[in-house]
Design a protein around this nucleic acid. Structure first.
Lengths: 131, 131
DNA sequence: CGGGATCCGATTAGATACTG
DNA sequence: CAGTATCTAATCGGATCCCG
């Protein structure tokens, strides 16, 4: 598998010897492409938010997936988690500078999709109906 | 759910009335983030390829997933599928202009990941070991 | 050669219930 | 309030067989 990946990377102009890069790329792309990640990051782009606020704003998400996704984003250093020792407890999530820079990069792709959504929708319709 | 999505889009500076946009964005991001899609697109970025050539080059992919992913990319108009009426049969896949423009947009994100991979790897390690 | 159809194990995610 | 734990339904993906 390494040989193949090296070939891909070489063809892409990537220097050899850093095969694990593509694994991480895949990994991060998968996270970015994730349904809930996109919604959480765009929600947090407006400012810090509490768990329940996110849960209410992102309709349809379960506590489980919200918790899991937040933890993954935290692990990657894309968001911060601040717990205040109060009663009742309060926890705030916020994008880190790294998270904001990723949000900007994602935005680029989002704009591409918005620009070409008509094309893609038409392509799909043609493909489904016409054949 | 619509109200929430509208709120997200408004917060993002997206004009109201195109809620289904975010669905499509999610959809395309999910496809782009897909493990096999990335490898197929980068492989095809070097030029047209046959089914078996892709199957050999992208080690580890099953015929099923190659077939399914190619079909999805074809459906979205990101690649073309050309079958030659020969014996034995020959089928060539190639990126469309739309596919190439997406590949360029993805490249942007890939570069972001490559730039910040060290940070993310370190963040993960800190998170896993330190706490 | 280039797949489609089917079976089946593995991963995922929702619903629900419980806790510091 | 902010989660975790558990069970279960659905989806995904690999292996295998078969066909034009």
């Amino acid at each position: 598998m390494d040989a193949v990946l090296r070939a891909d990377l070489a063809a892409q102009g990537v220097a050899p010897g850093c095969v694990e890069t593509i694994e991480l790329v895949r990994d991060v792309l998968a996270r970015v492409g994730d349904k809930w990640t996109v919604l959480i990051v765009t929600a947090l782009a407006t400012g810090p938010m509490r768990f329940t606020a996110l849960h209410e704003r992102i309709a349809g998400i379960s506590q489980r997936m919200l918790s899991h996704t937040l933890r993954a984003l935290h692990r990657d250093g894309l968001i911060t988690r601040t717990a205040y020792a109060e009663v009742p407890p309060r926890v705030e999530y916020e994008l880190t500078p790294l998270g904001r820079s990723l949000a900007a990069a994602v935005d680029h792709l989002v704009h591409w999709v918005q620009t070409h959504q008509t094309d893609i929708a038409r392509n799909r319709e043609e493909f489904d109906t016409g054949r």
